[in-house]
């Protein structure tokens, strides 16, 4: 993965973010700092509900930090921008547009490329994600996996500086998920964008990542950052390699520690959880 412009570096600097509900104020993120290197694939992993989506929202500019800074290429984030593109949990395709028109939406809105060029790109991307025969279908006519693939194409056509993936394959069955990961790997390895991928699946995290950031449970902070030195291009078969297993063991250990701490903190039956995780 080469990044000629060396753009798309995201810096989280001492970010604190609290969410007010009716009565209480929950601190979702507490003095959280990390760097997403430009042109690389960084994966955030942490227990569900630990504030991963908040991180995505902060970088995308949908939310603002209460304290600290979110910098993209040295410039503080002030609001949404088409250089930072989010792919959401579950599909957010426009249901009133066909698959093809969904993909064309971005280029036609920003007009950074001509209609002909956009059309060429859209067809190429849809072919790459295996949707060439479904271009004229509406999202509701597609299966869950197809919708996600359409969404990938819709995001990638904009060549964003930063791609923010918020558990994009969540809720898919295991087979489809694996297929999606392969499609995604192929697309990522050709793209020059910075990718930030959020997940709660260890396997997925290691398979995709250049760098893995493990978050603590609420309030989220960086627990550990880890370079994933598996060779590229990667395929699902890498999940059988020795190096993968070593990495997985390391990650599991760190996550386990965190889970125990979380359960102790909340005063739940920590013995059960401990023994459960060890088996």
């Amino acid at each position: 993965m080469v990044n000629p412009n060396n753009k798309g570096e995201v810096i989280f600097e001492d970010v604190t973010r609290a969410v007010q509900t009716k009565k209480t104020e929950t601190i979702v993120m507490d003095h959280c700092s990390f760097v997403v290197e430009s042109g690389k694939m960084t994966v955030l992993i942490g227990p569900s509900g630990c504030g991963k989506t908040t991180i995505i929202n902060l970088i995308a500019g949908y939310e603002k930090p209460d304290r600290g800074k979110v910098l993209v290429d040295g410039v503080p984030v002030t609001g949404p921008d088409w250089e930072r593109l989010v792919v959401f949990q579950e599909t957010a395709l426009f249901p009133w547009l066909t698959c093809y028109d969904n993909v064309m939406f971005g280029p036609l809105a920003t007009k950074v490329m001509s209609r002909e060029e956009a059309d060429e790109q859209a067809v190429m991307l849809l072919e790459k994600v295996g949707l060439q025969d479904f271009m004229d279908k509406y999202p509701m006519q597609l299966s869950g996996g197809m919708q996600r693939r359409a969404e990938l194409a819709r995001a990638l056509i904009n060549r964003p500086t930063v791609m923010l993936m918020d558990e994009p394959f969540r809720g898919l069955d295991a087979m489809t998920r694996e297929l999606m990961q392969e499609y995604y790997l192929r697309l990522v390895e050709e793209s020059h964008s910075t990718h930030l991928f959020v997940t709660s699946e260890i396997e997925e995290a290691i398979l995709l990542a250049d760098k893995l950031i493990i978050l603590t449970d609420k309030p989220s902070r960086v627990k550990h950052a880890l370079d994933i030195d598996l060779p590229r291009p990667r395929e699902a078969s890498i999940l059988m390699s020795k190096r993968y297993l070593e990495l997985k063991a390391t990650v599991l250990e760190i996550l386990h520690e965190e889970a125990v701490k979380a359960s102790k903190a909340s005063g739940k039956a920590d013995i059960d959880i401990e023994s459960g995780l060890r088996t």
Binding site: A60, P80, R84, L85, V86, A92, F94, G106, A109, N158
Partner: peptide, 12 residues
């Protein structure tokens, strides 16, 4: 998520 997605695509 729909207007948010559209914002990411740079819609006016």
């Amino acid at each position: 998520r729909l207007p948010r997605a559209a914002m990411s695509f740079g819609v006016s």
